[in-house]
């Protein structure tokens, strides 16, 4: 079980509601996919005609599935375009590159009870949570806040569990978040995934109700796992000008130019690739440099860090 990218093939496309598309993806070589956990996401490389998007989606397939992965994609009107590409262009049989599953929203398994609050399409990570809790028997409750019309769209995905409740914006159907949060026993963990405003409201209500921060978890979507804006770099000793693309690291670009740069972990921890920075301002993403070293601005770790603005000049 070693690898970093996989070639997938679209096996099925189903529009489950206006603006909601379900995809079933299998390994293009017919082999098995790596298993993934509750709360896992996968980053997909979406090759449009003019540009490439890298979008991450929660897996809604059952945890541990190795025959196929499933995702539900909401078409975002003002998105960067990746969700529109999936809705308009992607067809059964198309192939696309994906990363191995990552997980920034795993359930906390020491919890005595799991309380989940979903807003709209924010139910996607909780579909795999429900499957896991169904298997392990862990106590749980899911509150889905959505438009009344969406209830029938989501209900088939949630089974008939008594632990699931729907709420919508009508008298008698709204979720009383403060009351819900005030009545939870010690050992409960709270998970929230929805629109930013709802996430903020739930987090604030939890703080008011005295929840320790360690027991409150919010899915942060859209945070880049790698890449960023494209930028330029100049290697003084090699005399090479580089264009660092948005989807590659500075180290990748240095290596692509044929310059040997020492490196080890490629993850910003070991410090082997630390390089003197002669000009330019770095956006430090490593775990190695001290606060003082960052403030001095004379060192950069090209395996993870990028340019904050303009061009970087490296002593390499």
């Amino acid at each position: 079980m070693i690898g970093d990218t996989l070639l997938l093939q679209v096996a099925a496309v189903t529009d489950i509601a206006p603006g909601l598309r379900h995809l079933r993806l299998v390994a293009a070589d017919g082999g098995k996919l790596p298993p993934a956990a509750a709360g896992a996401h996968v980053q997909f490389v979406l090759e449009g005609a003019a540009r490439t998007w890298r979008n991450a989606y929660s897996l809604v397939s059952r945890p541990g599935a190795r025959d196929a992965w499933e995702i539900i994609v909401r078409r975002v009107p003002a998105s960067r375009g990746g969700s529109a590409f999936i809705h308009e262009q992607l067809e059964v049989g198309d192939r696309l590159l994906a990363g191995w599953p990552g997980n920034l929203f795993a359930p906390v398994r020491i919890a005595r009870h799991h309380l989940m609050i979903a807003g709209g399409i924010g139910i996607t990570p909780f579909l795999s949570y429900l499957a896991e809790f169904g298997f392990t028997g862990a106590g749980h409750a899911l509150h889905v806040c959505c438009r009344e019309s969406e209830k029938d769209v989501f209900a088939p995905w949630l089974g008939s569990s008594p632990a699931v409740a729907f709420h919508w914006d009508a008298d008698g159907h709204r979720l009383d978040i403060p009351a819900l949060l005030a009545s939870q026993p010690a050992g409960t963990h709270l998970y929230v995934c929805g629109p930013a405003a709802m996430n903020d409201e739930v987090m604030a209500a939890a703080a008011v109700a005295g929840w320790p921060a360690s027991h409150v978890h919010c899915e942060h979507f859209g945070s880049a796992l790698f890449g960023g804006e494209a930028f330029r770099a100049f290697l003084v000793r090699s005399g090479i000008e580089l264009e660092v693309a948005e989807d590659e690291s500075l180290l990748d670009a240095i290596e692509r130019a044929g310059v040997a740069a020492p490196c080890l972990c490629r993850g910003g921890a070991c410090g082997v690739c630390v390089t003197p920075l002669l000009e330019g301002e770095a956006e430090h993403r490593d775990h190695f440099l001290s606060a003082d070293e960052r403030a001095a601005g004379r060192l950069i770790m090209p395996c993870v860090s990028r340019a904050r603005a303009g061009r970087l000049v490296l002593d390499l």
């Binding site: 690898g3 790596p34 972990c265």
Partner: peptide, 20 residues
């Protein structure tokens, strides 16, 4: 020397399929 702080941060980001 901060070895453990760095190692911990690195391990928290350890990825499936990419053992070290």
């Amino acid at each position: 020397t901060g070895v453990f702080e760095r190692a911990l941060k690195y391990l928290l980001m350890l990825r499936l399929g990419q053992p070290v």
